[in-house]
Design a protein around this nucleic acid. Structure first.
Lengths: 350, 350
DNA sequence: TGAGGTAACGTAAACGCTTACGTCAACCTT
DNA sequence: AAGGTTGACGTAAGCGTTTACGTTACCTCA
């Protein structure tokens, strides 16, 4: 059934013109009279001509495709509730400019990657959007060195000139911590995530700043993973060490949820006996019991920004790298035990 | 910095052989002596040669790329907790065969799509994996007519010869309903999803079969959307019409969660006064309060199967289409009120 | 009116690869 | 020893575009 798609030579013959002319009108370039242009356009429409992308890419060395790469820590990848939202933002923005998204998940093991990614070596993409800190740092450095246009999302290499999109980690955690302070809490611990991730470090800074300003003692615990189980274990440890704790700020939602579980199992009621605030506002947060107060991160927006910056970079390769920080919002639900609860279904992003 | 990647002619000159020879060893084809082959391989290694995919695609008319298309009903797309898991399965399987995934989200509005998708018209992909019933039916028919290799996931066109992967919808709902019956429930309603989706229809059939076998009266309500809000509204309606209800089977998790909310707001305790079972076992299900008993669907596996079938189809285009059904598992948590509860963190898929 | 200029178009080379076909030597037949 | 077969390699055409460079025809202005 699949009839060979038609090509410029065929159309050219049909119209009695040259392929150059066809190409010019297809690409909207000067050098063809208005009358002829209309004729050609007409025929192109009728025949539903679509230029072959591979041939075009070969000739122009451009693909109109960008790679979205996400590393998978322990088996989770594109199905991560956080990164999949970012990806949705990327896809939407790129699609509106007729760019396509090529998906790549890579293993987080440092050694498993060489100089570059197959899709860039093969010339399949014009640039990359790299999501998340699990991505091997060395790989990113190699890509930069090779001159591959890239934008980092939810990650950043401090000393490097590279575009990156971050949420306001420090500000978000500062606000969360202040909220606890303002509601009378004095013994507030921070459950931090893996510190090699920039985001976690920045969040810790925000927490410490708020605590310092309030003249309170900072208490930080460090997790190895971003999981419920890990949060559970951490809070167990925390409550043993500091039984006086009345409030918890977590570096991410799974850890916060795990902490709530652990507290409940120890017979502490949340939020009555222990107030908890998470971070990220992943889709599940509102469904937890009690619904999780958390710092909302505009993931879709971050993806959109990443796409925009990459497109800009592709058009003007010499653009000075920028570090973009998108604001956060504290979403009050029930787990922090204050009054102004929003409806459960509150959804910050459309 | 980006040095021009090297090409076959350059390597050929360097070795004093022809490009044909290079191509032959790159593609592992006969016609070159063992000794020379080794020499060439050596040089290819040293120079880290990677063939240009666009040129290759142009010459062979193959891309080693498949498109993953998902329609977005009301703003959700790749970030859907169900489809993103399927996508992860697809990606993993394809990557292991050196295929890439090109992402495409399309609008669910029927009229907005022409004969085919841009990525196939442009020759960017060898085939498509199409996820979900929101995909415009006419588009699928057009693609089939055009001879595009496709596999449907979580969707099917009954009268068409097309590969599709479904979960055992009928069996899953049958099992869920029987579970309710066996635990003594007599007034069990089914909250069905949009019936133009094959899956929902099949689930309804499973429900009705179980009810009929038990000699019980079927009560079905139909939702327009697959959302919490929709489930909430439906159960309100259901309890008004049938106050005697003691159990609910829902066609999907969001609707089930919505139903639980509605019940709780009316002062009915779940599961004590009303038992609820969902369907799909999306990531949030275990976090609901109470944790949702639901029918687990092996989404990752479905994605993997879809990829496998498509690869097979690409290798042998005349393959007879198959309809694959992957089994489901009833996951007992707390919302159905029976004893054998599994730990909250129970995760069927790694 | 004729040199120079410009706009409109065609010609053909290039992009980097695959592959049908041609060539040539070496090895087999009888 | 002449003809035929085979394997190893090179030549070159082709994939469908884009685009640098010619070639016209026409217009302008001295």
């Amino acid at each position: 059934m699949a009839s060979r798609p038609l090509t410029q030579p065929e159309i050219a013959r049909r119209l009695g013109v040259s392929v150059a002319t066809i190409s010019r009108v297809v690409n909207d370039q000067p050098g063809v009279s208005n009358q002829l242009r209309q004729q050609v356009l007409q025929v192109l429409q009728e025949l539903r001509y679509t230029p072959n992308a591979n041939a075009r890419s070969l000739a122009t060395d451009q693909t109109s495709t960008v790679g979205f790469v996400v590393a998978m820590p322990e088996q989770t990848g594109v199905d991560d509730p956080f990164y999949s939202k970012i990806m949705a933002g990327v896809e939407a923005q790129l699609a509106s400019r007729d760019y396509q998204v090529l998906l790549t998940t890579i293993e987080a093991q440092p050694a498993s990657w060489g100089d570059t990614l197959p899709i860039v070596a093969k010339g399949r993409v014009d640039g990359l959007i790299i999501a998340g800190p699990p991505t091997p740092r060395q790989l990113i450095l190699n890509l930069i060195a090779a001159g591959t246009p890239i934008v980092l999302v939810d990650n950043c290499l401090p000393q490097q000139d590279v575009n990156c999109i971050l949420s306001d980690n420090e500000g978000g955690l500062y606000e969360a911590t202040r909220h606890m302070v303002q509601h009378g809490h004095r013994h507030i611990a921070f459950l931090c995530g893996p510190t090699q991730w920039v985001s976690n470090h920045e969040r810790e800074v925000g927490y410490r700043r708020a605590m310092a300003e309030a003249g309170l003692q900072a208490r930080v615990l460090y997790a190895k993973e971003t999981t419920i189980a890990s949060g559970q274990k951490m809070l167990d440890e925390g409550l043993t060490r500091w039984p006086e704790l009345t409030a918890i700020c977590a570096a991410n939602d799974p850890v916060a949820i795990g902490a709530i579980r652990a507290a409940q199992q120890r017979g502490r009621r949340v939020p009555r006996d222990l107030a908890v605030i998470g971070y990220d506002d992943i889709a599940w947060a509102a469904l937890n019991s009690p619904p999780l107060t958390t710092v909302h991160v505009y993931k879709r927006r971050m993806g959109q920004l990443a796409a925009l910056q990459l497109l800009e970079l592709l058009e003007a390769p010499e653009t000075v790298p920028a570090r973009s920080i998108v604001a956060t919002d504290l979403v009050i639900r029930e787990s922090c035990g204050c009054q102004g609860a929003l409806p459960l279904n509150e959804n910050k992003e459309v």
